[in-house]
């Protein structure tokens, strides 16, 4: 299986002439799980949105398959492969099944393929009993699962979770955590943000920390001590 990767060079973003971050080089790839941490307002969500092609950087050189792309062409690639999931997922005013179908419909999949994939995704996310319910009326945890299933049917290469666990109770966190593990096992690249140091050393291979406009990157291979010194989600789950 070929690995999908995209590299951002000289990536910077400012708001009202205030520099949010300046990153010399950042590569994201499928099959790896990474935690992005930083205090509130450090630019984690903005960085994720840039990676997802939802926010435009002030400057960036983007390389896909070693070819330099302009922002517009890069977005075309990004929108097919990278999916961003909001902290509080937005549900369209439709049934759970229709929400899951949304992306496939817009990307022109055949009706049979859509039916088949939606059925599978409903099973995968344990949402079969809710498929005809209006997605807006679900609980926070159920909405998060619909959002995950909605992304899952599109077979993304990379999923970007913006504070995936923040609005969930213990049970909800456990379920989402299990689903993220399943996705990782299937080779999907995962980037999770957290303003708490709540990450799992068994799940994440990388830790990126955004602080004072700089991004520090720690990999597990070279910084095992760094990974051992941070709280694990099990601990967070127990404490929650």
């Amino acid at each position: 299986m070929t690995t999908f990767n995209i590299t951002f060079k000289d990536l910077n973003k400012s708001f009202n002439q205030h520099l949010l971050f300046n990153i010399p080089e950042l590569t994201i790839e499928s099959g790896r799980c990474c935690l992005l941490s930083g205090i509130n307002g450090s630019g984690k969500s903005t960085l994720l949105k840039i990676m997802a092609g939802l926010e435009t950087p002030n400057n960036a050189e983007i390389y896909y398959k070693n070819i330099k792309l302009d922002w517009k062409s890069a977005c075309k690639q990004i929108h097919k492969k990278i999916i961003y999931l909001h902290q509080t997922p937005l549900m369209f005013d439709a049934s759970v099944a229709d929400n899951i179908k949304y992306g496939m419909r817009k990307q022109g999949y055949s009706r049979n393929k859509i039916q088949e994939s939606v059925k599978m995704a409903l099973q995968w996310a344990d949402l079969e009993h809710l498929k005809d319910n209006n997605a807006r009326l679900l609980s926070g945890g159920e909405k998060q699962r619909v959002a995950l299933a909605r992304a899952y049917v599109l077979s993304p290469e990379i999923l970007l979770f913006d504070e995936a666990f923040s609005n969930l109770d213990t049970q909800g966190r456990t379920r989402i955590f299990e689903q993220i593990c399943k996705l990782k096992d299937e080779g999907v690249g995962i980037i999770l943000t957290s303003h708490e140091l709540a990450h799992n050393t068994s799940l994440t291979e990388h830790h990126m920390h955004l602080e004072n406009t700089h991004l520090k990157i720690f990999s597990k291979e070279n910084n095992i001590e760094h990974f051992n010194n941070i709280k694990t989600p099990e601990l967070i789950l127990v404490n929650a």
Binding site: A52, G53, F92, Y102, G103, K106, L154
Partner: peptide, 18 residues
């Protein structure tokens, strides 16, 4: 309107018009 509508649609592969 909630900007997440636009962002969710785009990230799920909708074109700008969609």
């Amino acid at each position: 309107s909630d900007r997440r509508i636009w962002e969710t649609a785009r990230t799920l592969g909708a074109t700008r018009i969609q």
